[in-house]
Design a protein around this nucleic acid. Structure first.
Length: 308
DNA sequence: ACGTTCATGTCAGCTGACGT
DNA sequence: ACGTCAGCTGACATGAACGT
């Protein structure tokens, strides 16, 4: 039998079944037994062997008194092909299960700096015990970019008050919160309570974080026809405690955030003088990743840790 | 919808190695 | 030399993909 010598093996000519046939031949050293082992007839195995011989330009197995013995080239291929098939089997038959204990994955989560303050300490503490090699990266994005990032898989999850993120996205409520006001402890015009007159007379700082629905406070005031003086408009909550503690500004912010500011000192929390809306903190994900094991695991973790 | 092409499988018969 | 076993080959069937 003559074999054409190829400079390179054209992998496009290699049917995966041919490699399975090769593996069976290695194991059985007998065409009939190899065919039986992979559930084809002997002629089919013979055909497969013929194709492999042509593609690989080597007889691969030759008949001897001990049976069909592999050529040196076939022996050379044996281990890499076994390994490759093993890897394919593991990949294709893998458990649809996320192994948190060994995963080195980085979870990318859209959240504001409020979210970082509220969720990250508890999340990271828990991860350090159940998923010690997992990393977390957070990003704050406007809603349009958030949509694209969740859809493409660039981001795994968005967590927060994001009322504009609806169609095509799954969402799950974690807890409800409302708003309170904060002012410095020794504010010259505001004591332990806050009247509507005091509220409207005060200078305010407002935070409009991109991608969130916290501008709802502005809408409530506008609906009731109230006007207030806005002395400062920022996009992050981070600087607020320092600013409030050192000025006469009043800020209307999410309750959970105000609570986290109190230990810093020189800040008091006040009940707003008008009824503030209740909003839901939810986690959001794209339908593409609804069944993704890692994404599922992360969502379940947020539920376990933060859902009320 | 139909015909053609191609890949893949089965069946039957042939070939070669080996033991007696 | 002959029988047996194992593998090879050609003819044919089947089904999917593709073009008209």
């Amino acid at each position: 039998m003559q074999f054409k010598v190829y400079a390179k093996v054209d992998i496009a000519e290699l049917d995966l079944k041919l490699l399975v046939a090769f593996e069976a031949m290695l194991h059985t050293r007998n065409v009939t037994a190899a065919a039986d082992a992979i559930g084809i007839t002997q002629p089919a195995m013979s055909t497969a062997l013929g194709k492999l011989r042509k593609v690989l330009a080597d007889p691969l197995f030759v008949r001897t008194s001990q049976g069909m013995e592999p050529t040196p080239f076939a022996m050379e291929l044996a281990e890499p092909i076994r390994d490759a098939l093993q890897l394919l089997r593991q990949t294709l038959n893998r458990d649809k299960h996320f192994d948190a204990a060994t995963s080195t994955r980085t979870f990318r989560i859209v959240m504001t700096d409020i979210g970082e303050r509220v969720f990250l300490p508890g999340l990271l503490q828990h991860l350090s015990t159940v998923a010690p090699h997992v990393s977390v990266r957070t990003v704050q994005l406007p809603v349009k970019e958030m949509r694209d990032a969740l859809e493409s898989g660039e981001m795994d999850l968005a967590v927060g008050f994001i009322p504009d993120l609806t169609s095509g996205y799954y969402q799950q409520r974690l807890f409800n919160r409302s708003y309170v006001c904060i002012a410095r402890t020794n504010h010259p015009h505001i004591g332990d309570t806050l009247s509507l007159e005091q509220y409207l007379a005060a200078s305010h700082a407002i935070v409009s974080a991109p991608g969130t629905g916290h501008d709802v406070v502005e809408r409530v005031l506008a609906e009731k026809g109230y006007r207030r003086r806005i002395a400062l408009h920022v996009t992050h909550f981070l600087a607020i405690p320092l600013i409030v503690a050192n000025t006469d500004l009043v800020v209307t912010i999410p309750t959970m955030l105000a609570e986290s500011y109190l230990p810093a000192g020189n800040i008091k929390m006040l009940t707003p003088p008008l009824k503030m809306p209740v909003y839901a903190i939810r986690q959001y994900w794209h339908e593409r990743f609804h069944e993704d094991p890692a994404n599922k695991w992360l969502r379940e973790l947020f539920c376990d840790l933060f859902r009320d």
